[in-house]
Write a protein that binds this DNA or RNA. Structure first.
Lengths: 195, 195
DNA sequence: TCTTATTGTTACTAACTGGTAACAAAGATA
DNA sequence: TATCTTTGTTACCAGTTAGTAACAATAAGA
């Protein structure tokens, strides 16, 4: 008995972070969190209201969307900026296992937490597409479709990489495989811009 | 008591089909299947060995991969063939809820069933890429990357459409939204082929 | 010092999980 | 008729789930 609420809360948040990283959000139970952290589960209810509250607290600390707030310049060449954006997106996906778990969770479940995150991401995404499309001198919808296809493809492959090593002969778990994918994305962007 | 094994098995397979269509593979329990079908759960063990056996039996009857066995001609214009392929793929994804559930399941779970299906799909995918790349006179790896990106993107968006209505401003639940996506895919193919 | 709020432990509930044993009813075979 | 196999029902098991009640220990404030 330490009688230190702050460190107890931290212990819970750290524990659920590890659990999410390893097995994802889908199968987390409050008993398992309690057992693994060594904290009585009733304290989860007291301090966070519910398991969802604890998850929300963890997500709030683990800020996923900072890297998305690019500062798109008003003028200049759009091509390298767009390429750079997706290269960074892929890097973040490959690095951050929790981000992959979060996108996976979004596919199988609907709740308060996911709804909020979706709203944030949607706003940021639409705004970014608006700016980049203007910079590139293209119609907004054209930009939206291309951005959506590339984002969806890389997100899917990143999620899949945790469960499956190879897809259409591409190695999803090696740097060289992802290099091939990233170069494919850049070629795609080149082709679209050249048109 | 009907004493008719065949119809009992059919009832179980039908029931699990409905359950998969509605809620996916992830949360199916043998008790729920038993209750919803009105068949004692012990009969599931007797007739199918396990819940996985029942799922496998259902999947075997619901043949997903027939449409994938395109007969790619040896000569001719590759462009309309490729476009047609992806248009059909999108149509199947949008039509078949169980197929979407299956792809979703593949992202969150690894087991015998998924392993087998993956192997089949991988073989078919690589073979198709080989043929189409030859037809188009392109390097196999270039074709593999483009095909992978388009397949991954459309699959992801189709899965997402069951949980989320809008993505980057695109309506994932309406025909017009998917028309936009499909036309984006065709533009992408045009751009790549034009290069 | 007495009271009160906070932090934490233990033990419990009711509902549900996958899995099985024991039994009954029907049909086939000898 | 007597026996054996198949089909099906009922009731149970041990383990796990989310959630709570009751209580102990510590600290802060009056």
């Amino acid at each position: 008995m330490e009688r230190d609420r702050e460190s107890t809360e931290k212990r819970l948040i750290d524990t659920i972070g590890h659990m999410i990283e390893q097995n994802g959000f889908e199968k987390i139970g409050i008993n398992a969190v309690s057992a693994q952290s060594g904290v009585s589960k009733i304290l989860i209810y007291r301090y966070f209201g519910s398991l969802d509250g604890l998850i929300m607290a963890y997500i709030s600390k683990h800020d996923f969307w900072l890297n998305f707030e690019f500062d798109i310049p008003e003028g200049g060449d759009a091509l390298p900026i767009v390429k750079d954006m997706f290269r960074k997106y892929v890097a973040q996906l490959r690095t951050d296992a929790v981000l992959r778990r979060l996108f996976r969770w979004e596919l199988t479940c609907s709740n308060e937490i996911i709804g909020q995150l979706r709203e944030m991401r949607e706003r940021a995404g639409v705004e970014m597409i608006r700016r980049v499309s203007r910079l590139a001198g293209r119609a907004e919808q054209e930009g939206a479709v291309v951005a959506t296809l590339i984002t969806a493809a890389t997100t899917y492959l990143a999620i899949l990489s945790d469960a499956c090593g190879v897809f259409n002969g591409l190695d999803l778990q090696s740097d060289s495989g992802w290099d091939t994918i990233s170069k494919g994305v850049e070629n795609l962007i080149d082709s679209v811009f050249a048109k």
